[in-house]
Simulated assay, not measured.
Amino acid sequence: MNSIYFTEEHQLFRKSLQDFLHKEVVPHIEKWEKTGTIERFIWKKFGEMGFFGLKYPEAYGGLNLDLFYTVIFLEELQKIKSSGFAAAMWAHAYLAMTHLNAEGDERIKQEYLTASITGDKIGALCISEPFGGSDVAGMRTTAVKKGDKYIINGSKTFITNGIYADYYVVAAKTNPELGNKGISIFLVDTTTKGIAATKLDKLGWRASDTAEISFDNVEIPLENLMGEEGKGFPYIMQHFALERLIMAINAHARAEYAIEYTLGYMSEREAFGKSLDKFQALRHTMVEHATEVEHIKVFNYAAVARLDKGEYVVKEATMAKLKSTKVADQTIYDCLQMLGGYGYMEEYPLARLSRDSRLGPIGGGTSEIMKEILSKMIIDNQNYKPAVE
C-alpha cells in the first residue's frame, strides 16, 4: 500500500536518514533528555545532510522535494525514543521556516531561510499566548508602528525552540480594533533588546526547549513585517493544515513504533509456560490497535498527497490530527500495559513515549478546538479560504 506514495528514491532516503539518526542522534538522546538541552552541533549536522531543506526552493539551498520526503523525516524522528528531540527539529523546519518561505521577502529569505536550511540559524514560531492558547484571534500582543520601527509588547507561551532560537516568527496585532483582521506576522531577532525567554518545565518532550517569551517595547525595523499588514490570521490558518498533518503523522509513527517494540517484547516474555503473544486476549488487543493505526496512516497519506498537489485540506488535516492523536494515545497506553511493571520503568521506551504522546491532543490546537472547527465546517457549512497571496 505504501508503494502508492513512496518510490525507490523515497526508500533510499529513509534508509540514509535511519543510518544518520542512529549514528549521530541516538547516542546523545539520553543525555539530552536528562539535561533538557539539545546541543547546537546537531542542527548543523542536519543542515549539512539537507534534512532542513527537503521542501524548500533550491535558490535558498533547499532540495524542492515532494512532501513524502517530509513524511519520512517525521516518521523516522518518532522512532528514536525522544519526541522532544523530534519536536525541536520539525518545529524549526516546518513551523518557523514555513512562514519565512511563504511570507518573507527576498532579504529575509536570503538571510534567514538560507541559514535555517544549513542549520546555522534556529527558528521558533510564536503564536500561542498565556491568555489565548488555541484562540489565535484573541491574542493580546501588539505591534505599533512608530516612525521607521514597530514596537512589540506582549507575551507568548508554549513556544518550541523558544530558548534555542536565533529568530522568532511573531504574530502580533497591528490593529487590535479589527480583531483577526488586525493581526500581522513579524521576524524578530532573539538578541533584540526587551526580549526575555523563560524555559518551561513539562510532563514530556523533556529534550525539547519550550519557553514563555515576553516582549517589552521591542523595536524592530519596518522591513521585518512579513507579507502584508493585517494578513497574519489567514497566513497562520493557511499553514495550520501542514502543522496538523505533521502532528497526525507524528502520532501514527509513534504508535507504529510502540506496537513494533511491544510485539518484540511479547514474543520474548513468557508467562505460564508460553510467550505473551500467544494469549488470545493480548493478541486481539494488539491487532485492534494495529488496524486503527493502519487506518489513520492511510488517511494521513491521502491528505498529504492532496496538500502536495496544492489543495486546501484544512478539513482533512483537522480530522487527521483529531483522530490520529487519540489513536496514538490509546495504542501507547495499552502497549505500556503489555509490558507490565517494566512498562512503568524509565529504561523501557513506553514510559517516555506515553508522556510524550500526551501532547498530541493538545499541541497545534487542542482536540476540542479541532472538533469545533469541524463542527463549523460539517454542521454549519462554513468554508475556510486560503490567504490570497
Rank of each mutant, 00 (worst) to 15 (best):
S3C: 08
E8A: 11
E9F: 06
H10E: 02
F13W: 07
R14M: 01
R14Y: 03
S16P: 03
L17Y: 07
Q18E: 14
Q18T: 14
F20Q: 00
E24F: 07
V26S: 06
I29V: 12
W32V: 00
W32K: 01
K34Q: 15
T37H: 13
I38D: 00
F41A: 10
I42Q: 05
I42C: 04
M49L: 09
F51S: 05
F52Y: 08
G53R: 01
K55E: 14
E58F: 09
G61I: 08
D66W: 11
F68K: 00
T70N: 13
T70S: 07
I72S: 08
I80K: 05
I80E: 06
G84Y: 00
G84T: 07
A87R: 09
A96L: 02
M97I: 03
M97F: 01
T98F: 04
N101V: 07
A102W: 06
T114W: 09
T114M: 08
A115G: 04
S116R: 04
G119H: 09
A124K: 01
L125R: 03
E129G: 11
G132N: 14
V136L: 13
V136K: 09
M139G: 15
M139Y: 10
G147N: 15
D148R: 12
Y150V: 05
S155W: 05
S155K: 12
I159N: 01
I159W: 05
G162M: 06
A172N: 02
T174I: 03
N175Y: 09
P176C: 07
E177Y: 04
G179R: 11
I183Y: 04
F186P: 08
D189C: 09
T190A: 11
T192Y: 10
G194W: 10
I195K: 09
A196G: 10
K199C: 10
L203V: 13
A207P: 06
S208R: 07
N217E: 15
P221K: 08
N224V: 10
M226V: 02
G230F: 13
K231E: 15
K231R: 12
P234E: 06
M237G: 14
A241L: 07
E243F: 04
I246K: 01
H252Y: 15
A253M: 07
R254Q: 15
I259K: 08
I259F: 08
Y261T: 14
T262S: 11
G264A: 02
Y265P: 03
E268A: 13
R269N: 12
R269Q: 15
G273V: 05
K274S: 08
S275D: 11
L276C: 05
K278M: 12
K278C: 12
F279L: 03
L282Y: 15
H284E: 15
M286P: 02
H289G: 06
T291A: 12
V293H: 01
K297V: 04
F299P: 04
F299M: 12
A302R: 13
V304L: 02
A305G: 03
A305I: 01
R306S: 14
G310V: 05
V313S: 00
A317Q: 01
K321T: 02
L322G: 05
L322D: 00
K323Y: 09
T325E: 06
V327Y: 08
L336T: 09
L336P: 08
Q337F: 12
M338I: 11
E347P: 03
E347C: 15
G364C: 01
G365M: 03
T366F: 04
I369G: 03
I369L: 15
M377Y: 06
D380F: 13
A387S: 07
V388F: 13
